[in-house]
């Protein structure tokens, strides 16, 4: 091995900070994340105030049924939605012209005539630009966490691990779109074509696939949801906990509950499998799991229990979604690598 890998990676890292488009997207990404954090912090404070108020007036029974104390993960709920779009765009911007730019400026032939292996060039480019993305992302997360601490929100140990998993999965999602951009850059003749192909894939994976799966495919595969038995359709009067308890203890309700859980699991399984093919859906699945598992412990009313159960099941799939987010960039980088190694330099 020559030192080519480090030289190319170093240049690519520096180039990322010279690239005005990358810097502009980074500035927007940073600003939106901070604005999202500020909004999230305000929402968290409101939720906390409301919780404390209810806690102070609730009786013993109500206290047992109340949600647990709001988690700081609420702050990341709105940030997550923003990350999906801006993070993906940041990744795409960093990757879509890495190879085509070299071809367009005719510097690729010059570069490869030097004592450097081809794989060192593509690896160096990926490491350099990926490193720049990591740096940008780490800076954004560091400022976000600093903001959290400055406003007096100190997460607990479990919440810290949730924040770290959230950040890691967001970074993997950005890297996945970066890898798609890099792949299209290796396949396409021009940067314009690479950008268009990458955006098409982005729209398919982040917009079309989730809509198709959640609004069509999942229901079609899982079938119709079980209908609630007529005998328990009448909702007990509010506060009549005895009547509610009697209703949920019936064999009919337990059967309905079981069928509903089964239906929900089947539907969720379809979404989970589809999510493995979309970095956006995988990130959303992880993000939802982390945020809801921290913020929703118990929900009341028919169906709420099923939702909580389903959420608990989904938490077991964080690992599979993280794996999907690792496999996704690996696959696209693999395609880019093979294409680059066989690229005709005539």
């Amino acid at each position: 091995m020559s030192n080519g890998l480090f030289v190319v990676a170093g240049k690519e890292f520096a180039d990322s900070f010279r690239n005005r488009t990358v810097l502009a997207i980074f500035a927007i990404f940073f600003a939106i994340t901070i604005i999202g954090m500020i909004g999230g912090i305000a929402e968290y404070q409101d939720t906390l105030d409301s919780y404390n108020e209810r806690l102070s007036t609730a009786g013993t029974v109500e206290r047992g049924l109340m949600d647990t104390r709001p988690s700081p993960m609420i702050v990341f709920e709105s940030v997550g939605a923003l990350l999906v779009t801006m993070g993906a765009l940041l990744g795409i911007t960093a990757g879509f012209d890495l190879i085509t730019r070299e071809r367009e400026t005719k510097s690729l032939k010059v570069l490869l005539s030097h004592p450097v292996f081809r794989d060192e060039v593509i690896n160096g480019k990926a490491i350099g630009a990926g490193g720049a993305l990591a740096f940008i992302f780490a800076a954004t997360i560091a400022v976000s966490i600093a903001l959290l601490l400055i406003t007096g929100i100190v997460p607990g140990a479990e919440e810290w691990s949730s924040i770290m998993i959230f950040a890691f999965s967001a970074f993997l999602m950005i890297v996945a779109y970066f890898a798609i951009g890099l792949c299209m850059s290796a396949i396409s003749e021009t940067s314009g074509a690479a950008l268009i192909y990458t955006l098409i894939i982005f729209i398919l994976l982040s917009g079309l696939l989730p809509v198709l799966v959640e609004n069509g495919a999942a229901d079609a595969i899982a079938g119709d949801p079980p209908s609630m038995p007529r005998t328990i359709q009448s909702t007990p009067a509010e506060g009549d906990m005895g009547a509610f308890q009697a209703l949920t203890d019936t064999e009919e309700f337990q059967q309905f509950r079981f069928e509903m859980q089964d239906w929900w699991s089947r539907r969720q399984a379809v979404i989970d499998i589809a999510a493995l093919f979309s970095p956006t859906m995988s990130f959303n699945a992880i993000s939802d799991t982390l945020i809801t598992s921290q913020t929703v412990q118990v929900r009341t009313g028919p169906g709420g229990g099923m939702y909580a159960q389903a959420t608990a099941n989904t938490s077991g799939s964080i690992l599979s979604h993280l794996l999907a987010l690792l496999v996704f960039p690996a696959v696209f980088f693999g395609i880019a690598y093979m294409r680059f190694m066989r690229m005709d330099l005539r």
Binding site: D15, N19, K106, S107
Partner: peptide, 10 residues
């Protein structure tokens, strides 16, 4: 030096 030699424009 290739024909129509290219460099990094930035």
């Amino acid at each position: 030096m290739p024909e129509d030699v290219g460099f990094y424009p930035g």
